[in-house]
Nucleic acid binder design. Structure first.
Lengths: 248, 248
DNA sequence: CGCCATGTTGATTTCTATCAAATTGAGTGG
DNA sequence: CCACTCAATTTGATAGAAATCAACATGGCG
């Protein structure tokens, strides 16, 4: 089945998306992690016809906060940052979307955040209107979306505690432990290193610090033999330290 | 119809809840604001049979974060603070529930936050299991719950920006403007004063400051003729100032 | 090889927290 | 009704954590 071109004339996204051959959902590498796990083969096949794979280059924009929600996304590869910006340039990253994460749960008319590709990103993309009709007819899909939404709400509350009440050191430790857990889930097994494809500035904007403080704290942790900095991430040297200093 | 005693043998809540005569949903003062607005008269009548009004005294606990979700709540009067606590006593208030707000959207097994009555609180209370069965059979109710959840997610993102990137002054201004907007919606019309039934410590734990900083900033705003402090709240003197300094 | 983005390190400032004390005010009981 | 009490709030002095300002290092890539 070939869905290439399904979305060729859409004008959302950054215009830099490249449309590739529609994947077969049965071979989807993130299906067990995603919204789609709620679907039976017949539904999956229907949804497959409605979807198309898109590739976004590193640093490109999937959509901006002011855009209408034309398409919704299921990330299958790479990392997306979700950004809220203030007029004076300050930004807050409200989350990073990893493979299996879904963008467009809300069914509202416009996005409330900008999505930018941190790495090259591949995403399974659906026309919003079609997906909405489909979910209206499939209560178990709506329920699954609701479960995803309330889970995200719980994560958002975790993050409020981090932003409002943790020290710089605790913020970093908590962030690293969370990334480790998320990658382990995505990869299906524990990796030696914790991948940090986002830059220091992104980490800073996620946990409410400056880039200098993020750099200082991580490098101090390295001097203290808590971790080592490696290409594309870090490696825990003293996992007990992180268990102790990270929130939950 | 008399539902008193419907929940008499439940052991969730603080034990200080007082069970009162079940209200008639048709006369509910917050129905137009709440989940229940999605229901037709017949459904409302069914749900009414499943519900009971509860009253919680000021400072009492509706439920703790470690509790199982036995009942879910629709606040009809008063203010509830939603709290996450760290083992060392630090706390983050993730939200205030006002009349019309729903507690228990998530359908998960346990609460992820503690709910405490800031003022006397009245709430329409449902057995979780019954409500869940009901929502499984009513897709439009599930959709409405999902809409509520995604709206809260958007508010949570707003709050992350506040916690991560605003100054103390901006946090206070943003908080006051948001409270004004929320009360106006609940009351149905604009009041001269902005009610602040929560104490300074609660405000501090909500916006990620200390009580001293909250007090200092608000009193400085009074000295600068931006607002006046009145019993039970504040009054804007210079609304333009707040439009300028509050986020969105 | 050199350029430019990204990250690190150092010096200093600033904002907010902390520590401490005084004030206010609501509720209570004489 | 008024003095007393206790919690909540305000105010003041000081400390401290992270931000800011400023170089400098690194490293990927043309």
């Amino acid at each position: 089945m070939d869905n290439s071109g399904t979305f060729a004339h859409q004008h959302d996204g950054a215009g830099c998306a490249q449309h590739v051959r529609g994947d077969d959902c049965r071979f989807c590498n993130v299906r067990h992690l995603s919204i789609c796990a709620a679907l039976d083969p017949e539904e999956l096949s229907f949804l497959e016809d409605m979807s198309g794979d898109a590739i976004y280059a590193e640093k490109s924009t999937l959509f901006r906060e002011e855009d209408d929600v034309v398409s919704i996304f299921n990330v299958t590869f790479g990392v997306v940052r979700l950004v809220r910006s203030l007029s004076d340039g300050r930004r807050q990253i409200t989350g990073f979307a990893l493979p299996g994460d879904f963008l467009g749960l809300s069914l509202e008319k416009n996005w409330s955040f900008t999505a930018e590709a941190v790495t090259e990103v591949r995403a399974c993309r659906f026309k919003r209107s079609i997906f909405e009709d489909f979910s209206d007819r499939k209560p178990h899909l709506m329920k699954r979306m609701h479960e995803f939404a309330t889970h995200e709400l719980s994560l958002a509350q975790d993050h409020m505690v981090l932003l409002g009440r943790l020290t710089a050191e605790e913020k970093i430790a908590t962030f690293l432990v969370a990334m480790k857990r998320r990658w382990t889930r995505v990869e299906g097994h524990e990796l030696g290193l914790i991948r940090l494809p986002m830059g220091r500035q992104d980490i800073a904007d996620y946990i409410g610090l400056t880039i200098e403080t993020v750099s200082r704290v991580i490098n101090q942790m390295q001097r203290d033999r808590k971790l080592v900095i490696v290409p594309d991430g870090i490696r825990f040297v003293d996992p007990a330290y992180f268990d102790e200093h990270a929130l939950r």
